[in-house]
């Protein structure tokens, strides 16, 4: 199987998942309890006004037409109008998306970098404190529910030792000056992102350490040593490079988990992002909003899954060059 076949397969697969999710999204929200109409339409409205509103939200079309309209509009990112705010969902989401991306990318990058670095370090220094630390951290992060840990941090640093803000993405009103504003943002970012990093890096480090140890025991590492390569070269160019395919794949495979984790993180830290928007919308039965947010999150998950496959194909020559061998 060549890389191209591989790629095409993954694309088709991603499209199928997208289709399933779109259909799910459509079906569930049409079937939601407490008819959408009750939500948007005040019983005191005149029949005409009621009709107009039904039309505006497209509630009168037959289901198939609604479905078609829905699919086509979603693909154009026309996500309808929020029941609660009467604003286009797309623009409400667009407002929040950058916040989510900032939080997410910060947490993700730090988790990855710290986790991998600590893991590599622990693999090199067997039997030292570093190794014990990594094993402990791995176990800890496996068992502790993220939201519990975040609540603890919030109480400790937000309320007890008040060194971090307790909610939001920035101070209101924001400080003057671009640099101060930037610092303010960072200040707000530390707890939500940091808690994710602390919860995330342990299992990363543990995984990296284990794969590194496995790689360091391989024959080609002895070859590299026999060749007289410097230690650093052996470690990075041979050991780390050869475990990159599984690590990178896992990095991307962990993306969906982090994307969905954003819902909880954003709720806890009142982060003005997509995840919290979803939660608010669900609790307020604001279906178009919930639908839009869910669609966005699902899309992110599909894309990151696809990237995982793609990157796996790219870093592993056995797939990229493709000589028949499947992993």
């Amino acid at each position: 199987m060549g890389f191209r076949t591989y790629l095409i397969r993954r694309i088709v697969y991603a499209l199928i998942v997208l289709f399933v999710i779109l259909t799910f999204n459509f079906a569930v929200f049409r079937l939601m309890p407490g008819d959408a109409e009750k939500m948007i339409i005040d019983p005191r409205f005149s029949p005409e006004a009621r009709m107009a509103l039904r039309k505006q939200f497209g509630l009168d079309d037959p289901p198939l037409v609604q479905y078609w309209k829905y699919i086509t509009s979603l693909l154009r990112f026309d996500l309808g109008q929020s029941f609660a705010t009467r604003r286009p969902v797309a623009s409400e989401l667009a407002e929040r998306l950058p916040n989510t991306i900032v939080l997410f990318l910060t947490a993700f990058t730090l988790t990855m970098v710290i986790g991998t670095a600590v893991g590599v370090y622990a693999a090199q220094h067997r039997g030292t404190f570093a190794e014990t630390f990594v094993t402990g951290a791995g176990l800890f992060t496996y068992a502790v529910p993220t939201f519990f840990f975040q609540l603890l941090l919030l109480m400790l640093f937000g309320y007890y030792i008040r060194i971090f803000p307790i909610h939001g993405t920035m101070s209101a009103p924001p400080p003057d000056g671009a640099f101060l504003r930037f610092l303010d943002r960072v200040h707000h970012l530390i707890l939500p992102a940091g808690s994710n990093v602390i919860i995330g890096f342990g299992s990363w480090a543990l995984y990296t350490r284990n794969t590194m140890l496995e790689a360091l025991g391989q024959d080609y590492i002895i070859t590299a040593r026999a060749k007289g390569l410097p230690r650093r070269e052996i470690l990075y160019h041979h050991a780390l490079r050869s475990v990159l395919p599984p690590i990178v794949t896992l990095i991307f495979l962990s993306l969906p988990g982090m994307v969905t984790g954003a819902v909880i993180t954003e709720t806890i830290f009142s982060w003005h992002g997509v995840g919290r928007y979803l939660m608010d919308a669900v609790l307020q039965q604001d279906y178009p909003a919930a639908q839009g947010a869910f669609y966005l999150i699902a899309l992110a998950v599909i894309i990151s899954n696809f990237m995982a496959d793609l990157v796996y194909g790219l870093v592993d020559p056995r797939i990229r060059v493709g000589a028949g061998e499947r992993r």
């Binding site: 080609y220 026999a226 990159l244």
Partner: peptide, 22 residues
Amino acid sequence: AIRWSRISMIFQGAMNALNPVH
């Protein structure tokens, strides 16, 4: 001074003596 430049080694090829990713 010694490894490979003066003493080199032929490993058993059936094993993973060559790094699969390079």
